[in-house]
């Protein structure tokens, strides 16, 4: 290796490290803040590393009024969303991946377009409708909205996953004695399972992270982000830091598990093909 090449490589990795730090450092800092003793957070000047590891901040957050309930609410809403989204979206994704049918492209574009729909327009007018339907301030109501938001992604990612399973495999199963459904269950489904699991995780994260609709459409049955958002004005620093940290944990875990599928979900270009 010449000196020039060495120099370039050094420069490359310098840039890479700087960018990686830019992404990672805030995460580390919020984690540190979440485990800093409560009083230390208000001290000036403050050191970056806490003087002692303390779970008091987290405990305060978790013991705060409404936190635990909103936590279970969030999990419930996310699971409901996940179930509904996959039940609706996976068949559509399968159809887009497997069949050439009139209107397929229109359907795909239409689905993509819904991604541009402002959350506020989804949530605010539905207050009235939800009150009428008795869905206002219910978890299932929030899950309905989250399903509407996650559905386009679910259709796109599952169609990507199912196109990864060659059609011939299902046809082969059919020539070997399976029905249409049997071929799907025995061949396509097992092969698509890891991808579908990733889709489920992304759906969970979308719901877990959503704050606007959840805050608008609930009063007593708040999800975690809605709970944190609506108590921001009165919440002390330690509550905010612990809340911020707590919200990102499941998201980070799922993202790490499903990272291979990130591109199928987000990568599609609108005017592709």
């Amino acid at each position: 290796m010449t000196f020039r090449q060495l120099q370039r490589r050094f420069l490359l990795y310098m840039v890479v490290v700087v960018i990686a730090l830019w992404v990672l450092v805030p995460l580390v800092l919020i984690a540190l803040a979440a485990f800093t003793p409560r009083l230390e957070l208000y001290r000036w000047p403050r050191t970056v590393l806490p003087s002692a590891f303390s779970t008091a901040t987290m405990a305060f957050f978790l013991r705060s009024y409404g936190t635990l309930t909103s936590l279970t609410n969030s999990a419930l809403v996310a699971l409901l969303t996940l179930g509904m989204t996959l039940a609706l979206g996976a068949p559509a994704g399968y159809a887009v991946a497997r069949y050439v049918f009139r209107g397929r492209e229109a359907f795909r574009i239409g689905i993509l377009m819904t991604r541009m729909f402002p959350t506020s327009l989804l949530a605010i007018p539905l207050i009235v409708t939800f009150i009428r339907w008795q869905l206002y301030d219910t978890l299932i109501g929030v899950a309905f909205i989250h399903t509407a938001m996650a559905l386009p992604f679910a259709v796109l990612i599952t169609s990507g996953i199912f196109s990864g399973v060659p059609k011939e495999l299902e046809e082969a199963a059919m020539t070997l004695g399976c029905s249409r459904l049997g071929a799907f269950v025995r061949v396509a489904l097992p092969l698509a399972l890891p991808g579908l699991a990733a889709a489920a995780m992304f759906t969970f994260v979308i719901s877990w992270n959503e704050v606007f609709a959840a805050a608008i459409l609930t009063v007593r049955n708040r999800t975690l982000p809605a709970q944190v958002l609506t108590s921001l004005e009165v919440a002390p620093l330690d509550f905010r830091f612990a809340g911020g940290f707590f919200m990102i944990i499941p998201a980070l875990i799922f993202m790490a598990l499903a990272r291979r599928y990130l591109f199928q979900m987000w990568g599609g270009a609108i005017s592709e093909r």
Binding site: E168, E171, A172, V187, L191
Partner: peptide
């Protein structure tokens, strides 16, 4: 099949 369609799983 042309692509064999041997089940990978």
């Amino acid at each position: 099949f042309q692509s064999y369609a041997v089940f990978p799983h």
